[in-house]
């Protein structure tokens, strides 16, 4: 009787075991959450390192090659006497700081190949967000070195990727990334708005003046006018209708657009 029970348990557990093994034998693809870390401007080094450490072992998929076997250099240990990556990174490439080198190693990994390894590492921007990459840089810097990544780096990277996201051609230099400014005045200057509009007395009176525009128009109307300038003309500027290009919806990032709209709407 006992033998019969054991056999039954054996068959049940064995069948389950075979299915489990089978499902584990195939390469594993996890569906990661896009962009799941986001840091403020005053992010602390320890926050970044902690987040980076988590990524290193999980979503980053780094340990699949770094640290196991012989596919890639081990980053956390000495790797033949040079010290861990936080020490090594400073003198890997002359002229590049540790931070710059590590960032480049992640977004364009095959530029500076470590001798003796094949170029198998992917561009990490494909699977990680900008903030995640910087968190990893911070974590790797912390391996024997000092964390120099700051909120400014992250923000800069974020704007770069935001402006290049639509063209995705940074490397080829075919399409120039739009300005990454966030200050509304810089944006207005950078996009040659003052060629037709007047701000603080400077500019040309081809379109409605920006001075006092907030008392005449609502924020929604301003936004609509930027995105779809041909929809209608302000009083007195009917002759200029159609002159303003309808490109700013694509040229500005959402954040830039909002900054400009809010800036203008508040100029009463």
């Amino acid at each position: 009787m006992l033998a019969e029970h054991l056999k039954i348990i054996g068959v049940v557990v064995g069948t389950i075991g075979i299915f489990t093994l089978l499902a584990n034998a195939i390469p594993q693809v996890q569906s990661e959450v896009p962009l799941d870390v986001s840091f403020g401007a005053d992010v602390s080094a320890s926050e970044l390192t902690a987040s980076g450490e988590l990524l290193f072992g999980s979503a980053g998929g780094c340990t699949a090659c770094h640290g196991l076997g012989t596919r890639a250099p081990n980053l956390l240990t000495g790797n033949g006497g040079d010290g861990p990556i936080g020490v090594r990174c400073n003198n890997r490439v002359p002229g590049e700081s540790c931070k710059e080198y590590l960032y480049l190693a992640m977004v364009d990994p095959n530029v500076y190949m470590v001798e003796g390894y094949s170029p198998i590492m992917p561009d990490m921007r494909r699977s990680l967000s900008n903030d995640q990459i910087w968190a990893l840089v911070a974590y790797l810097e912390a391996q024997g070195g000092e964390v120099t990544v700051t909120g400014a780096d992250i923000n800069q990277g974020r704007e770069d990727s935001a402006s290049s996201a639509s063209t995705a051609t940074v490397d080829n230099g075919v399409a120039a990334p739009a300005s990454s400014a966030t200050d509304p005045v810089d944006i207005l200057n950078g996009n040659a708005c003052l060629g037709c509009h007047i701000l603080n007395g400077t500019g040309a009176p081809i379109g409605p003046s920006f001075d006092g525009i907030g008392s005449r128009l609502t924020a929604d109307y301003i936004r609509e006018s930027i995105l779809d300038p041909g929809a209608g003309a302000s009083e007195g500027f009917e002759a200029s209708l159609g002159l303003m290009p309808a490109i700013y919806g694509n040229q500005l990032t959402a954040q830039q657009l909002e900054n400009v709209v809010m800036f203008l709407a508040n100029r009463r």
Partner: peptide, 25 residues
């Protein structure tokens, strides 16, 4: 241990996005 990259599951026809940015639009 081997120097070869691990055999990987490469989906030849991955799911396409519903829309793309083509030359900036």
């Amino acid at each position: 241990p081997s120097i070869a990259a691990p055999p990987s599951l490469r989906s030849i026809h991955p799911a396409p996005p519903g829309q793309i940015d083509f030359q900036g639009r």
